[in-house]
Structure formats: C-alpha cells, structure tokens
C-alpha cells in the first residue's frame, strides 16, 4: 500500500482515474443495456425505424423537414410520440389533401404496417405518448357507459355535440363527428390533442375514465333511432327545417285540395 500512496499526488493519477471511471461506467452500461434489450426485437425495431424513415422522407419530409424538425408550414414531430403518428396517419388526416384550415378524416394513404413503421421512426426521435395496447383498450371491461356519458358531456360535448356528431369551431375549424372512429384513435386523440383539441392527460382523465368515454361513444353509435328518424342528432335546427317543409307543406297541399271547387 505504501507503493500506491507514494504516488498518490503524481500528475498522471487524475487522468488515469478518470479514464478508469469512464471505462467502468461504459462497460457496466453496455452490459446492462445489452441484457434488457433482446437483440432480436432491437433488430426488428431498427428495421422498422429505417423503413419508417424511408417512408417519412418520401411522404412527409417535404413539409415536416428531413429530420422531422418541422418547417414554415408544418410542426416539428420530435417528441410527438407514436400515438400521434398512429392517430394522424391511421385516420387518413396525414398526409393532408390540401393546406386547408384543418386536416380531415379520410381513407388512410398508408396501410397498417406502414403506419406502424412511421410511428416507430417518429417515436425513435424522442420519447412521446405510445400507442395504447389492446390490453389497455379493453373498454368493454374497464369502462362504464353512464359515467362515460357524464364525462363526455362535461369535457367533450361543448365541441363534439351531445351525441358526438361534431360541431363548428371558429374560423372554419370544426370538431369532427366521433361516429365510426376506432377506440384506439379516440384514445390517441385524448392523449395527444390533435389540431384544436386539448390534451387530456392521465391526471385530467384517468385511463379508466377515457375508456368510459369510449364505451359511451360506442353505445351512442350503436343506439337505434329510438323516436323515429334521428334527423342527424344535431338539435332543433333540423326539426325546424322538417316542420317548415314536410309538415306545413303537406297541410297546405291538403288545404288547396279541400278548397278546390267540386267538379
């Protein structure tokens, strides 16, 4: 020990110790990370990321930038997460058909595998909300319709209308109808807040509450038109239109007939 302590103030000690510490940390980290990631799926992921990057460069980079850093007309995608990509591309909103006020839902341009690849690529740029798993999305088991309706009316109806039929926002923007939207996409919209929609974090609405909302929307979608034709479930406007056209129209027709001279 005397030998070591004699040279403890030698000028080479500090750099050597630093080198040793770095080496030790590096070795530990590489061992640790190698054990947590099976090399098989890491390989598949890197392939998907690469595939996603190719798709991204072809289909998205002209607006979102070569490294998804964003540009004058499109936001940066670094940190938006896989859920955001799955929602925007999976519902056909992205790529946009034109530079209108709002991207609208349409037939998706990419198939499921391509959407997954794009999501992997964007998720690889920085951490962000992940795509909810099927296990998480079991709304039939974990949701409650009545509670979902109450939450929907409190949080969603002001834009999406009482029966989730959609509604107008300012400057030509709109809250779309939620009829026929996949539960996965509703969940993703809630956690990513696409376009004018706010983000409903797990603190605002717990995952179980989100599932309740989805369950209520699905119930509203499946509900038969109880009182006859639903007239679009948009409130009294269509009712007024019907009474002013069919209602009074029929009766005026009858009145003309009644007042005709008998022949």
């Amino acid at each position: 020990m005397k030998y070591l302590s004699r040279y403890r103030r030698h000028k080479a000690v500090a750099p050597l110790l630093l080198m040793f510490a770095l080496f030790a940390i590096g070795t530990t980290f590489s061992v640790a990370s190698a054990t947590t990631t099976p090399s098989q799926s890491a390989f598949a992921r890197s392939v998907a990321i690469d595939e996603g990057r190719q798709l991204f460069l072809k289909g998205c980079s002209s607006c979102h930038g070569l490294n998804a850093e964003g540009g004058a007309i499109a936001p940066s995608l670094i940190g938006v997460g896989a859920a955001s990509v799955d929602f925007q591309v999976g519902t056909g909103r992205m790529p946009m058909a034109d530079m209108s006020t709002q991207a609208m839902r349409k037939k998706p341009v990419y198939d499921e595998k391509e959407v997954a690849a794009l999501a992997e690529y964007v998720a690889s740029l920085a951490p962000g909300p992940a795509i909810p798993t099927d296990e998480l999305l079991n709304y039939e088991r974990d949701g409650s319709t009545a509670e979902g309706g109450e939450l929907f009316r409190t949080n969603c109806a002001m834009c999406h209308n009482f029966a989730a039929q959609g509604g107008a926002l300012t400057q030509g923007k709109y809250a779309p109808t939620l009829m026929g939207v996949e539960p996965k996409h509703i969940y993703e919209a809630l956690i990513t807040g696409p376009q004018s929609m706010p983000v409903f974090s797990d603190k605002t609405l717990t995952p179980a509450e989100k599932l309740s909302i989805i369950k209520w929307i699905k119930a509203a979608e499946a509900e038969p038109a109880l009182g006859g034709a639903s007239l679009g479930r948009v409130g009294p406007v269509t009712e007024g239109l019907l009474i002013w056209t069919l209602g009074i129209g029929l009766l005026i027709g009858v009145a003309v007939w009644l007042a005709m001279k008998a022949r």
């Binding site: 009316r153 409190t154 109806a157 002001m158 834009c159 999406h160 209308n161 009482f162 039929q165 959609g166 509604g167 107008a168 809250a175 948009v234 409130g235 009294p236 406007v237 009712e239 007024g240 009474i243 002013w244």
Partner: peptide, 14 residues
C-alpha cells in the same frame, strides 16, 4: 357546468 355544441332553441325562438 355542461354545454353541447349546436345548442339551439326551437325554430320560433331561433
């Protein structure tokens, strides 16, 4: 605390 988009009165109040 709740409100729906497209809340309208009946036509005669519209």
């Amino acid at each position: 605390g709740q409100i729906s988009a497209g809340s309208q009165p009946d036509w005669y109040m519209g």
